[in-house]
Design a protein around this nucleic acid. Structure first.
Lengths: 169, 169
DNA sequence: ATAATTAGTTATGCTAAATAACAACTGAGT
DNA sequence: ACTCAGTTGTTATTTAGCATAACTAATTAT
């Protein structure tokens, strides 16, 4: 069963110093060479950290980053079709279907067949969906706060600007 | 067979205007709402673009981003163990094994059992590996050039600094 | 009508990433 | 010398993200 509130895998095993632990010699500081200057590498490492933070922040709601993004877009643009959302978020239509069905199964969103064009569905949030979204956004806000604390307000704004430019590469 | 030069999937289908093409009404500009300010979202979009650029740039060599990063690290730090590389690149040891074996099968790297500790392997590049790495780095340079053209030299430096900060979130 | 397109779906494959379990090996303490 | 906890690399398995091809149903152009 996949309710709107899902508990992910329980992590955190509390790494004890452990008695017979062989104390690691200083990690020897591996030289990354040119890799450290690769934007792609830095993006991957940063994304790993941010996504870990995301999962931590939204654990109690149990929404995926992808699911949250879809909820936000539907909330802001009720009546969009699946293709519209897919185009907006750069998701393949084929991959969007199961994601949306999951949201529907959780009673967060509904697909409404349009009489005008019976091929496409108008997407809307349920009341419950709006509530969950509001909670999720509040939780997510904490993550962004953490990021702002890490980068500074100016740094955060700069970063977004730079990443947006990269998207048009 | 998986040679050092692999041709990935052939894309680029040249979207023709096509005769009976229904001219899309203006895409209606979906409102992303707060999503546009999510660092995680921006990271994903940027990474998509950069990785697409990576694949394009390295197509003729056929190295994965992960593979290239491993080659760079081994080249710079000959004799590292698998665990060392994994720690340096934030890769699971279990996932590293097949990656390394692929590099070995392509005669780019070798595993040398240490008499001192017969559990671990010292990793080195073959001559061929060094050659391929040099070519790969040259090709990758083009990508970084494109990125610099997109962000400016200052922007590129800023971005790397900001992403590094994010890694420690 | 008929041909071409579009919207959504299904099936499938690939890669990255995570986890658990295991054998071989090491080293520290008794 | 021996035990035992810990490490190294491996295998197997699972999951998520992204991609492509092929299909149905509905729509539009000619």
């Amino acid at each position: 069963m996949r309710g709107p509130v899902r508990t992910r895998t329980a992590r955190a095993k509390a790494a004890r110093p452990s008695p017979g632990a062989a104390r690691q010699a200083a990690p020897a500081a591996v030289d990354l060479g040119p890799l450290g200057g690769f934007i792609g590498y830095r993006l991957r490492r940063a994304q790993l950290a941010v996504f870990a933070g995301f999962e931590l922040a939204l654990r109690e709601i149990g929404l995926t980053a992808g699911e949250l993004s879809v909820l936000v877009v539907i909330a802001r643009n009720p009546g969009l079709t699946q293709s519209d959302v897919c185009a907006a978020l750069a998701v393949q239509r084929a991959n969007f279907t199961p994601l949306l069905h999951a949201l529907e199964a959780d009673r967060l969103a509904i697909r409404e067949v349009l009489p005008a064009d019976r091929r496409s569905n108008a997407l809307r949030l349920t009341c419950h969906g709006r509530e969950v979204l509001a909670r999720a956004l509040a939780l997510h806000e904490r993550l962004e706060k953490r990021i702002t604390a890490c980068l500074g307000e100016a740094g955060r704004t700069q970063l977004i600007g730079l990443l947006r430019k990269l998207e048009t590469l």
